[in-house]
Amino acid sequence: MENRAVQPKPAASSFTRFWKDYGWAYLFILIPVLLFVVFTLYPVISAFIMSFQKYNVLKSRWIGLDNYAYMMKDDVFWKSIKNTTVFTLATVPVNIIITFVLAFFIYQMKNTWQTFFKAALYLPAVASGVTISVVWLAIYDPTSGGLLNRFLSIFGVDPVIWLGQSSTAMFSLILMSYLGAHGSGIILYLAAMGGIPKSLYEAADIDHASGWTKFSKITWPLLKPTTLYLTVTGVITSFQVFISVYLMTQGGPNFATTTIAYLIYQTAFQFSNFGLASAQSFVLAAIIIIISVIQFKFFSSDIEY
């Protein structure tokens, strides 16, 4: 019999080899990707298309840029942008200063006291925004039984309708922000302070550097990344403020506390104009993106890592 040469097996295709090596990895990330596509990407694309329509559940009509044109002429929309900007400028810088000062003093304490204050100050961060708003409604009660009015009565001040006057409603929401949750920022600042090498302070002590010099030349420059992060997230959060407005003022009085997020809610769920609400949402998203890019461009260059 003739000896037949053994035919070599065909080499596995590149796809087969790739699937054998990495297939399980893609299977593991398939579910998160599908969840992102179904619950995030698809709704965003649908909302973008909806912003160019006169939306109706049964049948929608394409109207092009009419929603955006109407929005640009709407006085309430510009009032909401102004209110949101005022709220942001009044709260974000002050809250960062308060957070930093609290973290700086807590960092000087012993570990036991640090743990206590971190836990105590972080508790409001895990509390429901609804719960916090209800508590502040009791504080701002316009009668003499309200906690704030009762305190002011000690000094002979008459009861103030804090949430019912255009002159005090926005201030009341801003004050609520000042005394609100600083816990997350404090934790971040404390972690950043703990990451600063002790050798830098020891070298400064050898050079007889003052406390202010050590703060301005060591502590603050190395905390700038954390400060930038808190600034960016603070601006994003303040531009989306909704719960306190919805529960405490409903945007009043006379649109004095109507923010862009609350206006979007009203337009969509009270007036059932989902196309206009979608347009307002994308304008809000564009504003947040532009502000964030500006912050990173002009402030990150001054950061030392």
Rank of each mutant, 00 (worst) to 15 (best):
I287M: 14
I187K: 03
T213I: 12
S281P: 10
A181V: 03
V92R: 12
G180K: 05
N111G: 04
S133L: 11
D302A: 02
F274S: 13
H208G: 08
G180F: 06
Q7M: 10
F18D: 01
L148Y: 02
Q108P: 10
R61H: 10
S167D: 04
L147Y: 13
T115A: 13
S46L: 06
G23E: 06
T131E: 05
Q240Y: 09
D207K: 11
T231A: 14
N149F: 05
G211P: 09
V101A: 13
A203H: 08
Q250C: 03
F242G: 05
V33W: 08
S244E: 15
A286F: 14
S14V: 14
A5D: 04
T259K: 08
T258Q: 15
M109F: 12
G195W: 03
S128R: 09
S216R: 15
Y262P: 13
Q240H: 09
D205M: 09
A47W: 01
L137Q: 11
I264G: 08
I196P: 02
E2G: 04
N83E: 05
N254L: 12
L175D: 06
I287S: 07
L230P: 02
I63F: 06
S153I: 03
S51A: 02
S153K: 06
K118S: 02
W24R: 15
V33C: 08
S199Q: 10
H182W: 03
L147N: 06
Y26A: 11
E2K: 05
E2P: 05
F105A: 02
W162K: 00
V57I: 04
I186N: 01
S51W: 01
T233C: 07
I63Q: 08
L147S: 12
F104A: 13
V101P: 07
T259G: 03
S272Y: 15
N273R: 13
L163A: 00
L152H: 08
V86T: 15
P124H: 03
V92L: 14
A191P: 03
L148H: 05
L179K: 05
V157G: 00
L247K: 15
L228G: 05
S301Y: 07
T259S: 10
T258C: 13
F255G: 00
A286C: 13
V245G: 11
A285W: 12
T227M: 07
L152N: 03
A203D: 06
